Simulated assay, not measured.
Amino acid sequence: MQSPERNLYVVKRLLGHANITSTLEYIDESVDNLRDILEAELM
């Protein structure tokens, strides 16, 4: 499984963002919420 940082750069490229900051705006700031989503997807 790739690290999340690598996946962000793939998403950045797919969305055509010039700056990673634009891509990061799509990321939920709640780490707990992200953990819950990831755990649900991986089970």
Rank of each mutant, 00 (worst) to 15 (best):
Ile20Gln: 10
Gly16His: 13
Gln2Ser: 07
Val10Ala: 14
His17Thr: 06
Val10Arg: 11
Gly16Ile: 03
Glu25Lys: 12
Ala40Ser: 11
Val11Leu: 11
Asn7Phe: 09
Arg13Tyr: 03
Asn7Trp: 02
Thr21Ser: 14
Val31Asp: 08
Leu34Ser: 05
Asp36Glu: 15
Ala40Met: 00
Glu5Asp: 04
Leu8Tyr: 11
Asp32His: 07
Arg35Thr: 10
Met1Val: 13
Asn19Cys: 11
Ser3Asn: 11
Ile37Val: 13
Arg13Gly: 06
Val10Glu: 13
Ser30Glu: 15
Tyr26His: 09
Met43Phe: 05
Ala18Pro: 13
His17Asn: 05
Ser3Gly: 07
Ala40Trp: 00
Leu8Lys: 01
Val10His: 11
Arg13Asn: 12
Leu14Gln: 14
His17Val: 01
Ile37Thr: 09
Val31Tyr: 03
Leu38Asn: 07
Gly16Val: 03
Leu24Thr: 05
Ile20Leu: 13
Ile20Tyr: 13
Asn19Tyr: 14
Tyr9Asn: 05
Ile27Asn: 07
Arg35Trp: 01
Asn33Cys: 02
Glu25Phe: 06
Asp28Thr: 12
Met1Asp: 12
Leu14Lys: 08
Glu29Gly: 15
Lys12Glu: 09
Asn33Tyr: 04
Asp28Gln: 03
Lys12Thr: 04
Val10Ser: 15
Ser3Val: 07
Leu24Glu: 10
Glu39Thr: 01
Lys12Tyr: 04
Tyr9Asp: 13
Gly16Trp: 05
Arg35Phe: 04
Ala18Thr: 15
Asp32Arg: 12
Ser30Cys: 07
Leu42Gly: 02
Val11Asp: 11
Met1Ile: 10
Ser30Thr: 07
Leu8Phe: 08
Asp28Phe: 00
Gln2Met: 12
Asp28Val: 09
Ala18Phe: 09
Ala18Cys: 06
Leu24Ser: 10
Val31Arg: 10
Asn33Gln: 08
Thr23Tyr: 08
Ile37Cys: 00
Ile20Pro: 11
Arg35Leu: 04
Asp32Ala: 13
Glu39Gln: 13
Leu15Thr: 04
Leu15Gln: 12
Arg6His: 00
Val31Gly: 02
Arg35Pro: 02
Gly16Arg: 08
Leu8His: 06
Asn19Trp: 05
Leu14Tyr: 07
His17Glu: 08
Arg13Leu: 06
Leu38Glu: 07
Met43Gln: 09
Tyr26Gly: 12
Ile27Ser: 12
Ser22Ala: 15
Asp28His: 07
Glu29Met: 05
Arg35His: 07
Leu24Phe: 05
Thr23Met: 09
Met43Ala: 13
Leu14Pro: 02
Val10Pro: 00
Lys12Met: 15
Ser30Ile: 03
Ser3Trp: 02
Asn7Asp: 03
Asp28Gly: 01
Gln2Arg: 04
Leu34Tyr: 00
Ser3Gln: 02
Arg6Val: 01
Glu5Ile: 07
Ala40Asp: 07
Val10Ile: 11
Met1Glu: 07
Glu29Val: 06
Leu34Gln: 13
His17Ser: 05
Thr21Arg: 15
Ser30Arg: 09
Ser30Asp: 15
Tyr9Thr: 01
Tyr9Cys: 00
Ser3Phe: 03
Asn19Thr: 00
Pro4Tyr: 02
Thr21His: 14
Asp28Ala: 05
Glu5Val: 10
Ile27Lys: 06
Ser3Leu: 10
Pro4Cys: 04
Ile37His: 03
Arg13Asp: 14
